[in-house]
Computed example of a mutant assay.
Amino acid sequence: MRHVLEVFGVFLRLGLTSFGGPVAHLGYFREAFVTRRAWLTDAAYADLVALAQFLPGPASSQVGMALGWLRAGWGGLVAAWLAFTLPSALLMFAFALGVGRLGATGGWAHGLMLASVAVVAHAVVGMARTLTPDAPTRTLAVLSAAFTLLAPGPAAQLLLLLVAGLLGWRFLPATGLLVAADAFPVPRGARRVAPVLLGLFVALLVALPLLSAAWPAPALHLLSAFYRAGALVFGGGHVVLPLLEADVVRTGWVTPEAFTAGYGAAQAVPGPLFTFSAYLGASTHLNVPPALGALCAVVGIFLPSLLLVAGTLPYWATLRSNRAVRAALRGVNAAVVGLLLAALYTPVITGAVHAPLDVVLALAAFAVLVRTRVPAWAVVLGCALLGPRL
């Protein structure tokens, strides 16, 4: 219990202060757990980061879960996730209640929507540099964006990721995933539990849509939609945007304006970006109390990561050396860039940019993110303040 409380305390401080997105979070984690506390070596930490890049879901949260599990078992995993997630989830829930009272059509909300244009464009550029370094992967990204725009929806996106993985396995060289030579310590008994967890991950992915169709309870609809988003999004962070948009905007659960304003606000809070789900769950037009909706959305979107991290850790040493797996992942990553590029067009640009001054503010915010060290949350707050003047 002492180690569990220790994990909770450290991750709560990180959840309150970790601004800057998943890349910055990984830097904070290294300082806290490798440099300051020496819970694991640099090489073992690099292995955990590589594992998170391999799995679908939020990378920084998955590394946090793994760190908590290695330190204090299952209690540590849950404590790390809860402490790191709770501050930003509560802030996004409070923001949803505020939007519900004030509406998402004011100038401040429009400023948040324009900030999201700059943030997503910055993410597209950064991910394209890393994940599409050559002509074949860039071509696959462009084709993926076109396919997503022509065939929106979660089923089409799943098909796209599967095809991209097959193309990567067949045609792309197996580069990337450069990990450390030494393996991290795996908890005792992990190999016995891992197959059960991976089986549960697949079972829920199949069963939740069937259950929500047979038993049309709004809370079950939310749990199913957000579980699917958390299970299928490769790349984490901003890449979840198109999956969530397909599930909550195209279905009419959340208006495009409220969706984009909430996404902008998510850039201004610490902790994982996936807590945007708390805002969406509380903002839906379904007949669900806001607190229950937020809880279903947050649990649904993070549960796949919990199952995958604990189910994959014992086998990571084998998976990371498989050339076919690495090549397939290159194809999936290129498709992820295409998905995010399509999301930049709709709903982000189409929902936020309506006049020449909108273009000017969005471009200025993008330039600040690219050319300066001003953090994203400061850019978001600046856009929110300037929004009423447009």
Rank of each mutant, 00 (worst) to 15 (best):
L313F: 08
A324V: 02
R330G: 11
H354G: 15
C296S: 00
A334F: 06
A317Y: 00
V309E: 02
L329K: 03
A342V: 05
Y315M: 10
T318F: 14
I349V: 15
V336A: 15
R326L: 02
V337F: 02
A328D: 00
L363S: 14
I301M: 03
I349T: 13
I349K: 12
A355E: 10
W316H: 03
T346K: 14
T312K: 10
F302G: 01
A335V: 12
A342D: 04
V298K: 04
W316F: 10
V336K: 02
G338E: 02
N322L: 15
G311K: 14
L329A: 07
V332I: 15
G311N: 11
A355C: 03
P356I: 09
S321P: 12
R323P: 11
Y345W: 15
L319T: 02
L319E: 06
N333M: 07
A310E: 06
G311Q: 07
L307G: 09
P347N: 06
A324I: 00
R326V: 09
S321G: 10
A310N: 02
P347V: 08
F302Y: 09
G351P: 05
H354F: 13
G331N: 15
A362M: 02
N333A: 15
V309Q: 00
V353L: 04
A328V: 13
V325R: 07
A362L: 06
A352F: 02
A352S: 14
A362S: 15
V360C: 11
G300I: 10
A352L: 07
L303V: 10
G331K: 13
I349R: 13
A367Y: 09
A362Q: 04
T346D: 15
A317F: 08
F302L: 03
L363M: 13
V299H: 05
V359S: 09
F366W: 09
A352Q: 08
L344E: 06
L363Y: 14
T318C: 13
L306T: 10
A327P: 00
A367H: 05
A343H: 12
V348R: 06
